[in-house]
Structure formats: C-alpha cells, structure tokens
Write a protein that binds this DNA or RNA. Structure first.
Lengths: 150, 150
DNA sequence: GTTACTATGAAAGTGAATTTCATGATCAGG
DNA sequence: CCTGATCATGAAATTCACTTTCATAGTAAC
C-alpha cells in the first residue's frame, strides 16, 4: 500500500530529473506510515531510530518536496513550528486542544457547502481553506488532561 | 471614538502598574485608525510617518500588549509573518486572495452554528476558531488583478 | 527636586527554516 | 565496468521574524 505509493512518487521524481536515494525513501516511508500532524523534529526523531545518521535538513527537504508534489500538506496550528500531514485522505479540518495538544480531525460536508455559498456571495473563487477550532478536548475537560498526547 | 478607547486602555495600563508613554499612544492610535490585518512592518512604516524616531521593537511590544489585554488579535495567514487586527468589531473570518493578497472579511452565523454542532459531537469545548478561505478574488478572477492591494 | 519605577531602542539572542558548499550517490552512455 | 554529469546529503552558515537584554530616557509618586 505504502510501497505502491512510494514507487509512484519515485517514478515521478525520476521523470522530473531527480534521482533515487535511500535517505529520502526512508523519510517518505516513515512519513506516510506515521499518523498525522508531524513536526519536522518529530519525524526526524522517528526516522533516526531506523536510520541514525540522517540529517534534519534532508527531512526538511523531503517534506518540502512532497508538499510541492502535492503528496503532503503543510499545517500551522500557531505553535511556532509547522506540521506536515499526508494529503492522501479526504479533506478534513482540525480540532486542536489547547490543554494537551491533541488534534482531532473532522469533516462536515455542510460546512464545505456553506463555504461555497459565502465565497460565491463575494465573487471569490475558492481554492483551499483551513478551519481550525481551538478549545478543550473531552479528556481535558473531564479531568486530569494527560499531557504530551498529540 | 478612538480617543475614548485610548483613554480606557491608558487607564487600564496605569491600573496594572504601567506608565503613560507618547510612543505607545502613537502606535495604538495608528493601529486602531488603520484598517485591519496589518503586519508589524506595515504599522511601523505608518507610524514612522508621524513619529520618525520610533523603533520597531516598540511596535512589537505595543501590539503584544494590546493582544494580551484583549484589544488586538494575532492573525496568521501563513505568510511567514503575523498580522494584527483590532479585536473590537464582531467575530469574522477571512477570504484571502492568493493573487493580490486582498483580504475580505465575512461573517456567517450558520457556519458558527455548525461549528457548535461539530465540537459537541466530539465532546470538545470550543474556545476560538479560525477559518480562512484562500483563492482568487473577484478582481483577480475578472482580469488584471492589481498587485499590492491588501 | 528626588526616588523608583517603567518605556525605549540598539544590539544581541532565539529558533525554525533555508541556503551554501564540499563530498558522496546515482544514473546514462560509452 | 568506467567515466562524467548531475543530483542528494549534511554540517555549517545564513535568513528572517520575533524576543530579550541592557543602558539610557521618560514618567509618576513622594
């Protein structure tokens, strides 16, 4: 599943004049296997468990490349550092807990539809949007609020 | 109108142990008089026309102060630099044109209501949200797309 | 005034992200 | 296989927005 995808991306890179590389393959594999919303630092840590020598710069470059190719999306929850997520699943928005940092994905076609209406009213041609709701997740609201989840 | 507001903020600062200052007053006045969505750099440029000597650091500090006091809101349209807007008008969201950088504000109670429903479904207690729709504004879609508007 | 603060701005410091550059891989074609 | 040509890599340097530091100037209370 992920293998198939990596092969496709590899072919695309080759067609564009790029070359295969072990490092990049490892980074991409970890990126697509990992859940979502990874910072570069987190992903670098993960990758290093399997490939200790890898430089953080390469992770940056690989994610930028994936973003340019349309396979990754850059997120910004206002933490001062970017997060990346695979762009393969369908569109969704984010609930971000300000207590523990948990991120819940959600999707609601009614919101999408309303956005259509709003943009049309302003003669605006929508290309993308981002909706983030910040607050307090169920666990944190309930009691302790376990830290360091995400 | 703005004078009244500035007096109120001044009193609040005094009550908190701060002191009056010419610089800060000028920055605040320009901030509240200017439209919206200013970067620190833009506001600094504006302020310098009336008060040439002022340092950018003071503008940063004043905006941070206003944000802490709840009179300003920090925005982030993913440009790599923050924008600030007065927090006095009612809640609204933003249409951001990727061609010319124009920002249109809009408000739709139906979107707010749907967000209520979504968060409740996830046991999430919402505190704030941000919705930005990126695309192409009417002017840019129509023809030339005048640059440097915003 | 005098004292005790706070505000200011130049310069230095942060931290994430990017670029540079010498070195190491990878590919195409002899 | 080699041999170039070119891309990929990573350490170090750079950039850029933003923050902090620190000596000086300003402001308020006495």
């Amino acid at each position: 599943m992920v293998e198939r995808l990596l092969q496709r991306i590899d072919r695309e890179i080759l067609a564009a004049g790029g070359k295969r590389s072990r490092c990049r393959a490892v980074v991409m594999e970890h990126f697509f296997r990992a859940g979502h919303h990874l910072t570069v630092e987190e992903l670098t840590r993960n990758v290093r468990t399997a490939f200790p020598g890898i430089g953080g710069v390469t992770v940056y470059r690989t994610l930028k490349l994936l973003a340019r190719m349309g396979y990754a999306k850059e997120l910004d929850f206002g933490e001062g550092t970017r997060r990346y997520e695979s762009n393969l699943s369908s569109h969704h928005d984010h609930l971000v807990c300000r207590e523990c940092g948990a991120v819940i994905e959600f999707q609601d076609p009614r919101i999408e539809r309303l956005q259509e209406l709003v943009t049309r009213r302003h003669g605006f041609r929508p290309a993308a949007h981002r909706l983030e709701i910040y607050g307090c997740c169920r666990d944190c609201a309930a009691g302790g609020g376990r830290a360091g989840k995400r």
